[in-house]
């Protein structure tokens, strides 16, 4: 029995002039319908590459010789996608699984009206006439809260504001009632007040449609609002995964601590200083051997040194449905968090 979305040991490597870029290097996670998974990570951590791999968008429209090398398994509702016929995967795209992108202005075609783009998305998967499809587009625009949808359906993307464009994008992705919705930084390009509206909308729609949602973001606030489970990515791998509440209140991995400490927070008293992670993200070509976070980890010396530098830590269960990939023992993790990190946040 597999989960609704079950990703197993996913690897996505890109050959380049400088060497093989290992954007995702052994990632596994599961997601059930009605649940929201938040994938958190910084740029280059492989979170967007993962979502595109699930959608099959690395192989679709890949021209030229340098093809992405993808291995592992991606099960969606009992079908393995990586080995499936590409045309079958294409038919699933937009119908079973849909995606919302970061910048709705560049993600919508500038030369076609919003209505035409939604109608197109609907008619690929449904054998309906132009009029029925248009009615459906208006209905969806109305559902996502666009005022005067019967008029705005004929507007071009540039005539919409940023928030309205993202609403239209959401309408387009939900037009076929997909069971899996992947939102890649859906609010990063938006203002805070508009972000609040869009997050609210995504939450409502999920409740209504009962689909599985993957939300990819660098903003811990956004995942805290939406996600049931959180997966923290670093250097193409998962370093910690668990229920949202535990991730925020009992994080185990030093990188997760770093993310929490880097962030100025409105909900706390003024911190004197932020606690940044030193150094910069790892190279995806010459990955540090052993734990990828080792060069930046303030606790690299806590466990046995040679192990951290040579052996890559595997994800191990540190609590109910809570995994972390760190050489420190669960006790050490708990103690450092409680004594050294939590009081400073």
């Amino acid at each position: 029995m597999t989960a609704f979305l079950d990703v197993r040991d996913l690897k996505v490597h890109f050959p380049t002039d400088d060497g093989l870029v290992k954007s995702v290097d052994g990632l596994s996670f599961q997601l059930e319908k009605g649940q929201t998974l938040g994938i958190v990570g910084e740029s280059g951590s492989g979170k967007s590459v993962t979502s595109l791999a699930v959608m099959g968008l690395h192989t679709a429209g890949q021209y030229g010789k340098r093809k992405a090398r993808i291995s592992g398994e991606i099960w969606l509702d009992g079908t393995e996608l990586l080995a499936a016929d590409p045309d079958h995967v294409r038919r699933l795209r937009g119908r079973e699984m849909a995606m919302i992108f970061q910048d709705p202005l560049s993600a919508l075609h500038p030369y076609y009206t919003i209505g035409k783009q939604i109608v197109e998305a609907y008619r690929i998967h449904h054998d309906v006439g132009a009029k029925a499809a248009r009615r459906r587009a208006v209905e969806m625009l109305d559902r996502v809260g666009i005022p005067q949808p019967d008029k705005r359906v004929d507007s071009y993307p540039h005539e919409f504001s940023g928030g309205m464009r993202q609403r239209a994008m959401i309408a387009m992705s939900l037009v076929n009632n997909p069971e899996l919705l992947i939102a890649d930084e859906p609010t990063t390009a938006l203002d805070v007040t508009v972000q609040a509206q869009i997050l609210d909308l995504i939450r409502d729609l999920q409740r209504e449609f009962g689909s599985a949602v993957v939300i990819i973001t660098h903003d811990l606030g956004v995942v805290a609002e939406l996600a049931d489970d959180i997966l923290v990515m670093y250097g193409g791998r998962c370093v910690e995964r668990g229920p949202a509440d535990e991730l925020f209140h009992e994080p185990r991995h030093p990188y997760t601590w770093g993310l929490l400490g880097s962030m100025p927070r409105l909900d706390r008293d003024q911190q004197e200083r932020l606690i940044p992670v030193k150094g910069s993200p790892p190279s995806l070509i010459n990955r540090p051997s052993g734990c990828a976070f080792n060069p930046r980890c303030p606790y690299a010396d806590v466990p046995k040194d040679d192990v951290t530098r040579t052996v890559r830590p595997e994800l191990t269960e540190v609590g109910g449905r809570h995994w972390a990939a760190c050489h420190m023992s669960a006790e050490q993790q708990k103690r450092i968090w409680a004594e050294e990190i939590a009081p400073k946040l």
Partner: peptide, 26 residues
Amino acid sequence: GEDYIRTARAKGLREHTVVGKHAMRS
């Protein structure tokens, strides 16, 4: 390489529609 071409593929359009219609127009 534009985002809207990726969107067109994400909708499930056939590749010849993506290239012949969406990309060609631009």
